[in-house]
């Protein structure tokens, strides 16, 4: 199939060196390769230097479109790609069915509000759910202003200098740091140095740092999308930079910022690895009431139950997973709703 393409490319290139056998003397080119080897005095001398394009040698009558064969390959490939795409869908379905089959029977109000127990049939996720809610709120409290502030600075204030490029590169790199490394940072910095211990506060600070790059990048995109004319209009009316941002840019960019923030927060409450390091507990028999309390969160509770050998605990883990998935799905739904509302307006 490349044959026709190659031929097509070769056609304009081939005739240029050939000059229909005119004598070499007509050329006035001092560094011409042919002049150094005047063996036959013709232009063919330099042709022997560079091998002609294979397409130029080929017999044109041998062009074989092989249309039927190529069409077959094309449709086979299309089917293959479709199958590959569907693998993702099928696995997602298998995962959801598996979780629901294992956990649906254990799902009940008393399980959602109950406390963990040594006995699987009495174990509940109350403290874990409360812990996740606390972590969600505190993480948002830290990460949202920092993330949006950084994005505003980068988009509206920062001169296009080395410091700004450094920060942007740094944010891109932070986004690729494994979540467990943030856990190590939290363990050393928040749990030990700031001696917050195994508290909700330590977990929330760690997760806030984890999702900060995501919020910054999403907010930058949202701010970038605000038309320049709005800025210019505000400045023309005498508004200062911050007044323009506060009254004109942020209101327009807010839905986009919120969408990014909600998605980032849903990542934060789905994470188990960093909270393992900052000391979530597998067994918390009380509802945390302030940020310095010990805690557990839903993903960690699930992990704790999955790691036990008893099948009964696996069922509770599946039921807890259903709750977690429902929570994340509703957060994504809010984010998607916001995004759609936003895109329709502009």
């Amino acid at each position: 199939m490349t044959e026709p393409v190659k031929d097509a490319v070769a056609v304009p290139a081939a005739p240029t060196p050939r000059t229909n056998g005119r004598p070499a003397t007509q050329f006035v080119r001092p560094t011409f390769a042919g002049l150094q080897r005047p063996s036959n005095g013709s232009i063919n001398a330099d042709e022997s230097n560079s091998a002609p394009h294979p397409a130029a040698q080929r017999d044109p009558s041998r062009f074989a479109p092989r249309v039927a064969q190529r069409r077959f390959i094309a449709s086979a490939f299309a089917a293959l790609c479709l199958v590959a795409t569907l693998i993702g869908v099928v696995v997602l379905a298998a995962l959801l069915i598996d979780i629901f089959r294992d956990g649906a029977s254990r799902l009940s109000w008393s399980m959602i509000t109950g406390f963990p127990s040594r006995f699987a049939d009495r174990a509940g996720i109350g403290p874990a759910l409360a812990g996740s809610a606390w972590v969600l709120a505190l993480t948002a409290l830290f990460a949202f202003p920092l993330g949006v502030g950084t994005a505003i600075w980068l988009e509206e204030y920062a001169p296009n200098n080395r410091w700004r490029r450094l920060i942007e590169m740094n944010i891109a790199n932070l986004a690729g740091v494994p979540s467990i490394v943030y856990g190590i940072l939290g363990l050393a910095l928040f749990v030990r140095v700031m001696s917050l211990g195994r508290s909700l506060m330590a977990a929330a600070l760690t997760l806030a740092l984890l999702i900060l790059p995501v919020i910054i990048i999403a907010s930058q995109e949202a701010i970038k999308a605000v038309p320049r004319t709005i800025r210019l209009g505000a400045y023309a009316l005498g508004a200062t930079r911050w007044e323009t941002i506060k009254h004109q840019i942020l209101p327009v960019a807010l839905p986009g910022i919120m969408t990014g923030t909600i998605l980032a927060l849903s990542r934060a409450i789905g994470e188990a690895a960093p909270v393992i390091l900052v000391g979530a507990l597998g067994f918390v028999a009380f509802i945390p009431t302030n940020p310095s309390d010990q805690y557990t969160v839903l993903p960690f509770q699930i992990f704790n139950w999955v790691s036990r050998p008893q099948t009964a605990f696996h069922e509770v883990a599946a039921a807890a997973s259903i709750v977690l998935l429902a929570l994340l799905l509703s957060m994504s739904a809010i984010a998607i709703w916001l995004r759609n509302k936003y895109t329709r307006r502009s």
């Binding site: 997602l92 298998a94 294992d102 789905g270 188990a272």
Partner: peptide
Amino acid sequence: KPVLEVLAGIPTVVYGYFALLY
């Protein structure tokens, strides 16, 4: 596309459950 996005949004601990028990 949204289905694939959902796949990306599933918590890793749930994937772990799926790997070990399915």
